[in-house]
Write a protein that binds this DNA or RNA. Structure first.
Lengths: 246, 246
DNA sequence: CGCGATTTGTGCACGCCTTCACAAGCGCCT
DNA sequence: AGGCGCTTGTGAAGGCGTGCACAAATCGCG
């Protein structure tokens, strides 16, 4: 906590990786800060206060300051944070300067959408390969990529040095795909299939279950409804009948 | 209270307050328990121990017992939990017995996939309406539903009593869509667009950002890579897989 | 050159969540 | 009937995360 170096390569300026072990909660918020910072940079802002950035990222300003303090002292008291410096620093910490190669397994409904998702490419990731087990899907071209058979995974993963895999298959085949990914050297998996994957301890898995998110919302709906209905007895929410047709 | 009542409505059967205020962390895990229980039920299991269910859900058994204890005592010591009873109880708590109506705004790449996602219908939700602002999209039929113009939202939301809305639009229009949903009476929003939504305090928002998940994985890749360069790095990290959420 | 305004960085307290460890309860077997 | 093994439910402890409040630091201005 003495002087900050400005123009140098962030992080490893003096050879020592100096990898701070950030709290998980902080790591999960860094991408949100990064998005807010990019937005600020586009509007031409050179510096931003913790208050301003916190508002843009939807968090408490004290929390933001504490989060950023874990990366080191990259702000200036009385002024704020240098936007581009902070962008570089966070991108370095997240390893986004590597432009990481990602492969996607399962080109069904969801996989199709993910393959075409612009948000990946714009944020430091390259989807370099699409796989599916269905021969009818193999050969299909999506967003400039050709779907290949899952058996090719080993070869291509090695060629492209793919470290991150995305699973968008039906739940039944997710574990087998995960095993194949691990065997191919993938060490991080983003899983969209419901269910629990078992992987070696050195492999990180994150799970996104769209239905779970809705179920959590449903709970809060239920709670809200029962709170408003509680004094009177039963009122709202009992009127749910099937009215699908239209 | 040894005999379990089967056909009765779970929860408020015996006049108990019936709505415990569960910890957020518990609520987020209940859907995972529910999925594991459904899977167990299909295999014909009648009861399951906390150890078994915890393994199926990918969590610690003590945590599972504490979570379930918040719902009440639905287990039998020395035996385990009655699968179907527990399913009913969790579905009641989550409000899934209501078969909630959901609308989806934004029929782009991702929205298209979500509209056809079978996981919604199979877990207590009915997608009853699709909206888009693009006139070229209006009229398109997806999965048995016709895309309607966003201006129809108010009318249709009232007709179908839609309480949950899903936003799958580009980031620029997400806030406007959220405002429209709130104006139409929606009180829970699942947001797939990057960025922060501001909504009235009585509206719940959950956010799923696919790129953020990848960025978090990227961080761990970066960390692992920098650890292998260093000697003596302990790489325990045998964490459970966490679903997205705050 | 010094002072006040502003903003960062952080010590501290509080609350939530997780995990351990064990008593209480239940069924089965003898 | 009684004991034994198994499993739940929970008290307690520890860890983690959050938010407050304030000292330290920097800039601008008179």
């Amino acid at each position: 906590m003495s002087q900050q170096r400005h123009g140098s390569t962030p992080g490893e300026a003096d050879g020592v990786p100096a990898f701070p072990d950030l709290p998980e909660a902080t790591i999960a918020r860094l991408p949100e800060y990064l998005r807010a910072l990019h937005h600020l940079a586009e509007t031409g802002a050179e510096t931003v206060s913790s208050e301003g950035l916190a508002a843009a990222a939807g968090v408490n300003s004290a929390k933001l300051r504490k989060d950023l303090s874990h990366l080191g002292s990259y702000g200036t008291r009385g002024v704020g944070y240098d936007v581009t410096l902070l962008v570089d620093q966070i991108e370095y910490i997240l390893g986004l300067d590597k432009n990481r190669a990602v492969c996607l397994v399962g080109v069904g409904n969801l996989g199709h959408a993910l393959a075409g998702y612009a948000g990946f490419a714009s944020r430091g990731f390259r989807v370099v390969a699409l796989f599916d087990a269905d021969p009818k899907k193999v050969g299909e071209r999506i967003n400039g990529l050709t779907v290949q058979h899952i058996d090719e995974l080993n070869r291509i993963a090695a060629e492209e040095s793919i470290a991150i895999g995305v699973i968008a298959t039906p739940p039944g085949t997710a574990q087998a795909v995960a095993d194949a990914l691990v065997a191919a050297g993938v060490t991080s998996i983003l899983n969209f299939a419901p269910g629990v994957l078992s992987v070696p301890p050195n492999v990180d898995v994150r799970k996104v279950d769209l239905a779970i998110e809705l179920q959590i919302l449903s709970f809060h709906e239920h709670r809200k409804a029962s709170l408003t209905a509680l004094p009177g007895g039963r009122t709202a929410e009992a009127d749910n009948q099937e009215a699908v047709g239209s």
